[in-house]
Design a protein around this nucleic acid. Structure first.
Lengths: 132, 132
DNA sequence: ATGCCACACGTTATAGCATAACGCAATTGA
DNA sequence: TCAATTGCGTTATGCTATAACGTGTGGCAT
């Protein structure tokens, strides 16, 4: 069941997995120069696949990427994800909630809108950075 | 109460108001060349102000901007907005729902996260483009 | 009036994000 | 074997956004 990754895909996933927070494609590129990466496309192609496999997420509001925090069950099997993004430390928390999905589904249905992909991103300050 | 706009701000808002769907900053720039616009910053500065005034919205998932569909009450007085974006025709529907706000508030609270700004964008297909 | 300040503006340059288009190599499967 | 698919590498290009500088104007306290 576990997706067999190519070398490039593994390298990119590895960088994201070990990162503190979200990374831009170009930051990933820089981190992989020693491994032979030379061009943005090498990163973007790997990112596209990893997104497709559900192993990483794209944060639209900051043009960057994070490893999925639920590495166990891939392949889209978790529904809508909401991200809490701390603007101070950059940390990202992944959240799931059936109530939200339900509510969004109702909203979309009311407009006869067929949902393909839902993005929920909350910018703000995490507990650590608030208390400090 | 109505915000007094500068010439540039008015021009940009006007373009967005009369547009079919969301526009990128550079598309706006092109549409305003005849009015003396020559550089991206002229557009971005106006956009920043209009966002601040709550007169337009930024769609993070497509790096573009739309006029707010509730021109009456500006100044942030409407809460979280969810956008339904049709990938076929580009049309954007603005939706508000107290239930969603409530649910997101609970989620954030659970993580002791202080929310500053919330982005909800649903990509998919609108009624027209689905039926056809 | 003078001087100061805040703000919008215009311009040039640059930084950051993403994809088009080409060709090559390896794999798969009819 | 041959064609189709997929990943890869490279070059070039396009799109999105901001930095940094200077100008002009209007308000306003002195």
């Amino acid at each position: 069941m576990a997706q067999q990754l190519t070398r490039n895909q593994s390298l990119v996933l590895d960088v994201l997995t070990h990162a503190e927070g979200p990374l831009s494609a170009y930051t990933i590129l820089d981190k992989l120069r020693d491994h032979g990466f030379r061009a943005p496309l090498q990163v973007y192609r790997a990112l596209d696949k990893l997104l497709e496999f559900g192993m990483i997420h794209r944060l639209e509001s900051m043009n960057s990427f994070v490893a999925c925090s639920h590495p166990d069950h891939h392949h889209h099997d978790h529904g809508v994800t909401a991200f809490a993004i701390c603007e101070d430390c950059g940390q990202v928390t992944e959240m799931h909630d059936a109530g939200i999905e339900e509510r969004l589904s109702v909203l979309a249905g009311r407009e006869h809108f067929k949902t393909e992909k839902t993005t929920i991103e909350i910018r703000g300050h995490c507990q650590n950075c608030t208390s400090g």
